[in-house]
Each structure stands twice: as structure tokens, then as C-alpha cells.
Amino acid sequence: MKPHRRKMLGIILFIAFGLSAAVGLTLYALSQNINMFFTPTQVAQGEVPAGQHFRIGGMVKDGSIAREADSLSVNFVTTDFASEVPIHYVGILPDLFREGQGIVAEGIVDAGGVFQASKVLAKHDENYMSPEVKAALDAAGASAENHSAASEGGSL
């Protein structure tokens, strides 16, 4: 092999090795950081493996928000209008968190069946519904429009 060919080969091998190492590590990191998303119905039917960290999405059930007066604890219920999952969260809720609003929470279900949220997200645009929440409602066979219209006396 001519010297410059050998050098070329060396460089190509170096690049190939670097790239495959990068791809391997990337895929590993990816597989370690996948957060599954489940709907309240899926949670109620026990589709979530015990102790798994996941995201849940649904609407905040009307009249379900209970704040403790002397701490930052909040309890509320999220629903896809077919099943409900109680959520417990300690901390400050996002600005747009309110009853009838679509939310996504991250955390795990404890032994008592309560979803212990480490993070609660509400979207910044009120007209915008997270695709995840929408999927959850669609899966449960309920359209959000019908429900919010019904709950607000058809004002939409």
C-alpha cells in the first residue's frame, strides 16, 4: 500500500471508529432517558410497570384541587373523562394550571395509587393543547371541545 493510501485508510478508520463510538454512546444515552407517556386510563388499567418514572397527561378535574394551607402540597385529580388518577405535588404550580386545563405531569405512582409528581407542566398558550393530552382524550373517546363547552355552559 502506498504511504498516502495508508494515511487515508488511517484517517478513515479513525473517523469510522469515532463515529461508531459516538453513535453507540448516543443510542445508549437515549435508551436510558426515554420517558414513556401514559393516559389516566392506561394507568388505571395497570399498564404501567411498578416503580417506573413516566409522564401522565390529562385535564385537571373540576373541583379537585386541594391545597394545604400550611405547606406547598397540592392534591388534584387528572382525568381523560374515562378514568381518573390522583396526583400529589409539592411546589409551585405553573401559571396556567387551573381546573379544566390540560396538564402533563412527570413522576411515579406510589403504593397507594397516587401519582407523586416531580414536575407539572401546563402550556403557555391557552388555546393550545399538548398533543399528549389530546391523544389521551382521544384515546378515551372524549373530545376536549365537547367537555369544555359543556362545563362552561356552551359558551364556546
Binding site: A29, Q32, I34, N35, M36, R55
Partner: peptide, 9 residues
Amino acid sequence: DLISIGPPY
């Protein structure tokens, strides 16, 4: 399935 990739990745 719906998933998300977190900042740790």
C-alpha cells in the same frame, strides 16, 4: 407510544 427525551440525555 408517546415518549419524551429528557435533559439528562
